[in-house]
């Protein structure tokens, strides 16, 4: 997703002189290219996220659209007070882009994982939050974010994400033919219709959900898959309808199960019926297990097998 985002951003900057890029310390080649193309609109702040975010807030007040881009964990944790006070409280027009969301920084360890920031950011007034499911969804998300007046946080992955919006992939996994990379602010995307269990996820972990759905299908369990490219502001009706249909809901996220989309969906379903409900993700723990991304997901039971086991256990009850 990193490379896709960077390509899309430079294209957007070429078409809109109001967009400026605020960088901390990112890959040399990308930064050099951005500086070469747009020298007057690219500012490198170094390893100083707080200052970068505070400056971006004020910069936006002068009619510009600053895109603040660096690692997800450092942006949302270290600079949180600056996001809250300078961007949100001042209702600025800043696009904050965190790269390496969830466990995508893999074996660099828990300091580099961003596994609490949906909880921390989705409660901030005046901040929308968007998460692409796979690289092709980045362009429409960035486009809508730039069009939108007001601040947005975009939580990206990093690399090696499965592209779920390719025709062959859609056919192979029998996803809805209208499951496109399009992005409509607020709308959950029903990627696959089903009758027995609703599985809701955000970000590229949806590829694990789709793989789990394929496994479930072989045992006669028909899963409905909902992608949340918008965390906030979210239209909740599709989620409620699906839960009321299947009576069985699983949330899956590279995040703590409290406060993330597990918490979000629980809030939405309060008072809407009686459901079996499980949340998959990190359960009040950091991910100190080492390995590649798939290994980490498996260790915390949020890979395809973990989702499959959870669904079959719930349905057999």
């Amino acid at each position: 997703m990193k490379k896709s985002f960077e390509d899309v951003l430079l294209t957007q900057m070429a078409g809109n002189e109001k967009i400026a890029l605020f960088l901390a310390d990112e890959d040399h080649d990308f930064c050099e290219k951005a500086e070469e193309l747009f020298s007057r609109r690219v500012f490198r702040f170094g390893i100083a996220e707080c200052n970068m975010v505070g400056a971006a807030a004020a910069f936006s007040k002068e009619g510009f659209i600053p895109v603040v881009y660096t690692f997800d964990s450092f942006l949302s944790y270290r600079a949180y007070e600056f996001i809250r006070n300078d961007i949100c409280l001042n209702d600025c027009n800043v696009k904050i882009v965190g790269m390496g969301g969830g466990l995508r920084m893999n074996n660099l360890g828990a300091t580099h994982h961003a596994t609490e920031n949906i909880a921390a950011l989705r409660v901030l007034p005046n901040l929308a939050m968007f998460v692409p499911a796979s690289p092709r969804q980045i362009a429409p998300i960035l486009e809508k974010s730039i069009e939108r007046t007001g601040s947005v946080y975009i939580r990206l992955g990093k690399a090696f994400e499965t592209e779920i919006f390719e025709d062959t992939y859609i056919k192979e996994h029998r996803l809805n033919t209208n499951a496109q990379a399009e992005f409509c602010v607020g709308k959950p995307q029903i990627i696959k219709n089903g009758e027995d269990v609703t599985i809701i996820s955000t970000g590229n972990i949806i590829a694990e959900v789709i793989a789990a759905s394929d496994m479930l299908e072989k045992t006669g369990i028909d899963a409905e898959i909902i992608n949340l490219p918008t965390i906030k502001p979210l239209e909740v009706e599709a989620i409620i309808r699906s839960a009321q249909k299947t009576k069985c809901v699983i949330t899956v996220e590279e995040h703590q199960i409290s406060g993330g989309i597990g918490g979000l969906v629980a809030e939405i379903l309060i008072g809407k019926g009686s459901f079996s409900f499980e949340r998959l993700g990190l359960n009040d723990t950091f991910c100190n297990y080492l390995g590649w991304h798939k290994d980490l997901l498996a260790y915390h039971c949020m890979d395809a097998a973990g989702i499959y086991n959870c669904a079959t256990r719930m349905i057999r009850k």
Partner: peptide, 14 residues
Amino acid sequence: GHGLSVSVGFALAA
């Protein structure tokens, strides 16, 4: 500890 950063943003825009 916010004002000087905010000033940097205004100054860059100017």
